[in-house]
Nucleic acid binder design. Sequence first.
DNA 1: CTTTTATGTTCACCTATGTGAATAAATGGC
DNA 2: GCCATTTATTCACATAGGTGAACATAAAAG
Lengths: 187, 187
Amino acid sequence: MKNLTSYLTLNFSFSPSEMEQLLGCFALRTLKKKDYYLKEGQYCKSVGFIEKGNFIYYQIVNGEEKICDFAFENDWVTHYKSLLGNLPSEISIKALENAELYILNLDKIELLSETLPKVNAIRTTLAEQYFTKSTQRATSLTNLDAKARYQALLKEIPFIHQRVPQYYIASYLGIKPQSLSRIRAMK
Amino acid sequence: MKNLTSYLTLNFSFSPSEMEQLLGCFALRTLKKKDYYLKEGQYCKSVGFIEKGNFIYYQIVNGEEKICDFAFENDWVTHYKSLLGNLPSEISIKALENAELYILNLDKIELLSETLPKVNAIRTTLAEQYFTKSTQRATSLTNLDAKARYQALLKEIPFIHQRVPQYYIASYLGIKPQSLSRIRAMK
DNA sequence: CTTTTATGTTCACCTATGTGAATAAATGGC
DNA sequence: GCCATTTATTCACATAGGTGAACATAAAAG
């Protein structure tokens, strides 16, 4: 729980005993490459903290996997709308590498909110993070051309080419793999 | 408070006395056409319920107003990220018509959460609504062409042309006014 | 190691949207 | 009701990105 512990320590101010209580509510879940954290149609009932590995969020549209998000170590993984609204998920979340998640179930979150109100700070952070990510993506899609979006993504996630196939990157950027190749070739 | 009262009655289950307590926390704010609910750089400290009127959310990019959202009667208006994270807003929210808002200040929300925990359902609805809107916009920008995005918008907000100038609609769709004209002419 | 499959590149051509200008129509102020 | 301003349309041309194919390379499977 190395990453999780330091993430919580760095970003929130829990006392040692609170931290112990909190960590006790997480359960380890290991996923193999290509395993799903969540499949379209399922109800998302937990949030996961990525201790190791990475994930794509995607939707199938006309038979194509349309990538709408990436997540790496120290990110949270969940489908926010499904979790909040108790709705079936429209998206799937798949591991691209063997992964380790620390899972916090929704019922535990509710319980913790009562006994340890500070965890609400985590909920707020999560909401803010998800909201920010999706609005930034929309903003970037309307205000920048494909090359500029690619450069912004590289700046945000410099190691992305080491961990995500290029056609997934293209999909996230809203272009075809050939177009991303062309953009890269132009330099 | 006609719209606010029926919105709360329809979507949540407050008792008459809870409703009274809740409504008592809102304050009326009237805005003239072109007035701002929030300006870029300000800290958003409230949510507003639109009793009457409409609003655009926008950012200035290269001197252009880039529209990222619309809001009408029975919508909530706030900058979610600024509100949650206590951050200066990157966007401005402007009335396009004379408007009436019922304002709920952040401190009142916090207080209510304690005395009337049911209001958390409103907070959750807000989070879900904002998250859904922005992810849908990003999805539509990557998966649909401009014509299909326009048709989807018309379906979602059929009266939009009666209440929003067309160049704002074009901006929201991520295209130039001339392109929207062309799309409309093609039928 | 060899074969198969997955991924990335390049190319020629096509299409949707951008650009800038001219014009028309609608709206608001007086 | 008239003029100024704002908003919408149309056009000719430019450009970014899509399409489908061929090929190249890398990775996985046997």
